[in-house]
Design a protein around this nucleic acid. Structure first.
Lengths: 137, 137
DNA sequence: ACTAGTGTTATAGTTTACTATAACAGTCTG
DNA sequence: CAGACTGTTATAGTAAACTATAACACTAGT
């Protein structure tokens, strides 16, 4: 897990998203306990309240159940619910935006979807003026 | 132009992004004036200060020049600088995240390339349990 | 000079996200 | 019961984003 935060989004939501990702990836299975609020807070150097807020987001979505004194546990069916809901959200809200951005930048969607698996430090050095969309000065 | 705001990101940055998009799309050409701070503020029902903040972001990036009493104007070279910088940012920061999400959701390249130009009300109804990645319970 | 259009700055208040510190409330183990 | 884990709530403070209102500074047209 990464220990750093993205400026674009509040920590508690990023936290929620990470748990969601872990569920989808199968790292966390249904019935499993989430790492404890205090543990996460300590490990990530973040306030326990912030962690709690992220977790309660998941409770509110019905993905996780909280049992006082025991911990927080992933509900049955969480994964398939997520798979469906997140898909819809992605296809309906994110992907269109992303696609527009790709087009604006003169990039090819197919190329991105096919050939690209940049493991980590993949900094493409200057596309060097490839194909600017129309130019009608 | 849309009149609505995304909760995920501060308005001033969304504003900045829209101008960037307009430059890339050629809606705004180099030398053109940006719509005035007060106009935008009025049209979008937003505080002039918020608009200014978005615009000054562009000034700080060297994309736009501000001339007191005249307006704010798009600098020469803005477009190509943008094309390069935004590409790098996209490929380096956004795309890896997006790709991970696509994989997690088990989305298929065809789904993304085909069905994804929903003019408005396009709600895909239940992908109906297509292909969950491994299942080893 | 006046006016109406630009960008810019000042003052001040609200809301949200995050923080620190501390206490409360259950569960389980010894 | 004591102690060590869980989640939860309370209190209070900081910083960022946004807002309302108002004034200042500059440019251009009349």
């Amino acid at each position: 897990m990464e220990r750093e935060w993205n400026d674009n989004q509040p920590i508690y939501r990023q936290l929620r998203d990470r748990v969601v990702a872990m569920i989808l990836e199968g790292v966390l299975k249904e019935g499993d306990p989430l790492p404890s609020v205090r543990n996460v807070a300590a490990e990530y150097r973040v306030n326990p309240l912030t962690v709690l807020k992220g977790y309660q987001q998941l409770v509110a979505e019905g993905l996780v159940e909280s049992r006082r004194g025991r911990g927080m546990f992933i509900n049955a069916g969480a994964r398939s619910v997520l798979l469906q809901g997140e898909r819809q959200k992605f296809l309906g809200e994110e992907w269109p935006r992303i696609q527009a951005a790709i087009q604006r930048l003169g990039l090819k969607v197919e190329e991105l979807l096919n050939g690209s698996r940049p493991s980590s430090t993949a900094a493409p050095s200057k596309p060097a003026k490839s194909d600017p969309p129309e130019e009608e000065s």
